[in-house]
Simulated scan of single mutants.
Amino acid sequence: MTLILGFDDYLLPAQQLAKSLSVAFKQVKLHQFPDGETKVTLPTTLPKHIIICRTLNNPNAKMTELIITAAAARNQGVKHITLVAPYLCYMRQDIAFNPGEAVSQKIIGNLLAAYFDSVITIDPHLHRINNLNEAIPITQACALHATGAMSKFLQQHFSQPVLIGPDEESEQWVKAIAQPHQWPYVIATKARFGDKNVAVSLNIKDKNKAVSLSNRDVIIVDDIASTGKTLEQAVKQIQQQAPMSISIIVTHAFFVDNALTRLKDMGVTNIWSSDSVLHSTNAFSIIDTLARQLKKINITD
């Protein structure tokens, strides 16, 4: 028997995952003490294999509670623990950019490897590595993509859009969505000067052929929207080509510092995201993507 454990901050998606897998679901209870510590209470009876489902935005408190949960489950005799983290934190800092900086990807990766037998996530923010197990040193470390869910969703809304990737890293997602439908796509270049200072250059070519955005539905595709500055710069470049509409679709939605309002004020028609992070822009789900992978690797056996 397999059991999914969830938390109140990501309750509905975790319950949907349990339903998709036809397995039982129970909630981990959290109690906050006045001094900021958290008491974690698990079900009193656990099977040999559990799946802990929690997305790790706002990660600092969540990580502590997650490790306590996993350790307590081991103490109850659980033999195999799978972490399903639709958004996986601390993956961007994979090198020390300046002297003294901690390489948080390796530190958090090793921490997760010490407590979990399997880790599954969606579109982690990886830069200089190809496989998640380079960051989390366990055999079953799996990074899935939201591109299938994105493609299905976009096909329901557009017939012949043009896709835009706001930087070189976005090409893997844009290409995967565009090619099955033979949609044209363009990859911009980006220079970053700080967390909130970026410059985007749009070269309107697809496979060395000029692509007109005039009177076209244009969709910007990215893995994560944090400050929204990259998206804003891309929108400015696209608007110069007089498109019919501009939409944005991302896997992980944060849109901090009123980024959502600024983008809408710029004339963006649609802003969509997956439910990897709960947000007002959620429009499509990655739960089926996670469920298919769990079935494939026999996690529910």
Rank of each mutant, 00 (worst) to 15 (best):
E232I: 00
D301V: 09
I129T: 14
K295N: 15
K175H: 15
Q76R: 03
A24K: 11
V28K: 00
A143M: 01
D206C: 15
T121E: 09
P166E: 06
V40K: 00
R128F: 11
F158Q: 03
A14Y: 02
P137D: 11
A143S: 14
N203L: 13
I286C: 14
T2P: 12
I271F: 06
W272P: 00
A114D: 11
H181N: 15
Y87E: 07
I108E: 03
P166I: 09
S214L: 06
A102T: 11
K152W: 09
A70I: 08
D217L: 03
T41W: 07
I299Q: 15
I108K: 03
Q237V: 00
Q16N: 14
N130A: 10
A259H: 01
C53E: 08
A283F: 02
I4K: 10
W272S: 01
I120M: 00
Q160G: 10
T189K: 07
T44E: 13
L294W: 05
H145T: 15
E101C: 01
I120K: 01
V250K: 01
T261W: 04
Q27A: 15
K264D: 03
M1I: 13
A141G: 02
G194N: 06
L126H: 05
T251F: 02
D265T: 12
F254Q: 08
P243V: 05
K207Y: 13
D167N: 10
L12N: 15
L202P: 06
Q16S: 12
Q293F: 08
M63T: 10
K296V: 05
M91E: 07
G6F: 03
T64C: 14
Q293P: 00
T289C: 01
M63V: 14
L83A: 04
C53G: 01
L21Y: 06
A96L: 03
E232Q: 11
T189A: 06
Q237P: 02
G109R: 05
I271W: 00
I297E: 12
T289A: 01
A18M: 05
W183M: 04
G148Y: 12
S170F: 03
N58R: 12
V119M: 08
N270V: 02
Y90R: 07
I50N: 01
D206A: 13
P34T: 10
A96H: 04
E134V: 10
I95V: 15
Q27P: 10
T64H: 13
P59H: 08
A210L: 13
T38D: 09
G267I: 12
Y90S: 10
I238E: 01
S274N: 11
P59E: 09
